[in-house]
């Protein structure tokens, strides 16, 4: 894919140079021609998207489409990587060998999902190092849900059930995204994610059917994770600045509020099954619309966590920075070893 991207970038550079040179020598008339060309390209592109054709890495695409995808896919990748931390916290203290094996597999999956996504983003012309650099420098965003702590084992259950549940709801429509590599990565992720949600629900079910103290743990975890899970779908539609354009480009298929409503509708009966109480006094079933009505979300909290002031923002970033620093010698040794092997092979030949 690098080659594709390099070729693409070269092509774009070349195009730019030609256009600029053209502008220099031809004056204002050329500007008109360029504008017309790019309008034609853009309308052809939109036609392809409208016809549900997939866009592949080497195809022409508007720069804004490319940037939107790079932003969204890299944020998504970072979320998977940072998402390993809250649950990783419980690997050494899982209550049984079975739970421990399952949790390791789940956390490893999150790492794998990050890799699929970084690899998809790289097809758009950004390098892995650039993306990792942005995460470590604190300039990249990731899902703010991972800035909440996991003080009890029930949190592992609640994360699987609610956080992965919300993630699946967000991700399933992206399997039909107009950009081929992102859609393919998402198909792979969604296939794996449903095990995450089911193991989480099973943990909650075990606790809910356990001792009074275990029930309290499950209830407490639900209370702490419910609202942040609803915030995972992003701002209300009226406030969401990217939604309209992303839907035109078929990067997004449903609005934030539609997805959030769907999540509430399917999750409330699951909480009832567990005999746990959803922490929302305004929650009620509306028979006319066949949807649950739910209370207002505290967006100040969301904005605050997004700005870096959540309970664990600093800790998460520091953990990633430390891992990167501590792994530096391994990366360098691997490069040195590969170089030595190449040189030996060259000598032998």
């Amino acid at each position: 894919m690098t080659k594709f991207c390099v070729t693409l970038r070269r092509l774009l550079d070349w195009e730019n140079r030609v256009y600029t040179q053209g502008l220099d020598s031809l004056g204002k008339d050329a500007l008109h021609v360029v504008a017309e060309d790019s309008a034609a390209l853009e309308s052809r592109f939109q036609k392809r998207v409208d016809d549900d054709e997939k866009i592949e890495p080497k195809d022409w695409m508007p720069e804004a489409y490319r940037h939107t995808l790079i932003r969204q896919i890299s944020q998504h990748a970072h979320s998977e990587i940072v998402g390993m931390l809250p649950e990783g916290n419980w690997i050494t203290r899982a209550p049984s060998l079975k739970r421990k094996a399952v949790l390791i597999a789940k956390v490893q999956d999150e790492g794998g999902h990050g890799m699929y996504l970084y690899s998809a983003a790289e097809t758009l012309g950004i390098s892995r190092d650039q993306m990792v650099g942005q995460l470590l420098a604190g300039t990249a965003k990731y899902s703010s849900i991972f800035n909440y702590p996991t003080p009890t084992w029930a949190d592992v259950g609640a994360i699987g059930w609610l956080v992965d549940g919300a993630a699946i709801m967000n991700q399933i429509p992206i399997c039909r995204c107009s950009y081929g590599p992102y859609a393919r990565a998402m198909v792979r992720i969604c296939r794996e994610e449903s095990f995450h949600q089911r193991q989480g629900f099973e943990i909650m079910m075990t606790l809910a059917r356990g001792t009074p103290e275990q029930r309290r743990m499950a209830q407490d975890a639900l209370e702490r994770w419910w609202w942040p899970s609803l915030m995972m779908f992003g701002p209300n539609d009226a406030e969401s600045k990217h939604t309209a354009q992303s839907m035109r480009w078929k990067i997004k298929r449903f609005t934030n509020d539609e997805l959030r409503q769907h999540f509430v509708d399917v999750t409330v009966p699951q909480a009832e099954f567990l005999g746990l109480r959803v922490p929302d006094k305004d929650l009620s079933w509306d028979a006319a619309s066949e949807h649950y009505r739910f209370g207002a979300i505290d967006w100040r909290e969301f904005q605050n966590v997004l700005k870096g002031n959540g309970p664990c923002n600093r800790e998460r970033l520091e953990a990633r920075q430390r891992a990167h620093e501590e792994g530096r010698w391994v990366r360098e040794a691997a490069v040195a070893h590969a170089k030595k092997q190449r040189e030996r092979a060259a000598q032998a030949a």
């Binding site: 890799m115 690899s119 790289e122 070893h337 590969a338 092997q341």
Partner: peptide, 11 residues
């Protein structure tokens, strides 16, 4: 199926 970064082919 996708791509990976590695120091050499074996990795």
């Amino acid at each position: 199926v996708g791509s990976v970064h590695a120091a050499d082919a074996r990795m």
